[in-house]
Design a protein around this nucleic acid. Sequence first.
DNA 1: GTCTATAATGTGATAGAC
DNA 2: GTCTATCACATTATAGAC
Lengths: 188, 188
Amino acid sequence: MNGAATREHIVEAADRLFYQRGYEHTSFADIAAAVGLSRGNFYYHFKSKDAILDAVIATRLAGTRHMLRQWENEHPTPSGRILRFVEIVLTNGPDIQQYGCPVGTLNTELAKLGHTMRGQARELFTLFRDWLREQFTELGHADQADELAMHVLAFSQGVAVLSHAFADEEFVRREVSRMRDWLSTYEK
Amino acid sequence: MNGAATREHIVEAADRLFYQRGYEHTSFADIAAAVGLSRGNFYYHFKSKDAILDAVIATRLAGTRHMLRQWENEHPTPSGRILRFVEIVLTNGPDIQQYGCPVGTLNTELAKLGHTMRGQARELFTLFRDWLREQFTELGHADQADELAMHVLAFSQGVAVLSHAFADEEFVRREVSRMRDWLSTYEK
DNA sequence: GTCTATAATGTGATAGAC
DNA sequence: GTCTATCACATTATAGAC
């Protein structure tokens, strides 16, 4: 098999498993089995578990940047873009209910482990934070744009944690509805 | 040493370590070292890691029930009691910043591990949920008491996750202030 | 690039002496 | 109740054949 393609398969499998089972709880053997490789061959592509995590986070960062640009194309207004973010807890509802928020759970886990890559995981949060701040600035709230961005981020994390714990879809809908009302008070 | 006292010491140490490092990342050796016991002697008191987790959750449940009764004694009005809950993210600010919410992070971790004790961990959330629902009912909002309780719980989890990730105390203060304003619209 | 074999370590857990 | 010694197993990681 092509080396680059194999590497890509490994990162994809690791990304999914880290999300579904957690980083620490996922072993090399799990990833190797998911890709269909022997454990030995694994080290030809990645020389440590941290190296895989590094690649996974880099992939997620790139994917998030791409998604945010897409949201910008699909929604011309800043309030429409913020609403698109808020609705991610509905769009990804089933995944969040089963596995939590991929950004929040990774950050929480790496922080507890005292992992060196904690800062890079936080960058995933920062991407959303900065993007939301830009939208609130464009909406005419430059003075409190970061505060509002953090508030929307906190909403998403609170909903994700409880959706994961209680598996209650109606709760998610109600919270999104609540957020829509709140957002409308900040529209131009 | 007295057997019951040793057992209590083990549960205390395990409780703290599970919170600070996570359940999976804490080994028998870690707990034994914290208590000052040999690994071998450990199994006289608890015959499996799950048994320790069981005891830790039971202790936390009892502690939470005790705390909620105390809050009821200290705050005569339902709005005062809800506010007391909201302010927990300030009271326990430093711990939450370093280790996250003990309830939220345990629930998230056990859910990802597919651990059998997941349901008992969720009970910790349910204690707060039911208690908050009672307060909102007493406040005259019986029809949407559970929805409001979940909203307040989501607030606490969102703030905890982001406080843990960004270590931003000012953010916590602002969110509490925002919550106080929101609460005031539901007061009698 | 892929494999098997294996090292080195840490883990949960047990046996048996004191 | 506490200890040492040890087992069985999974883990990350390496060496070397193909």
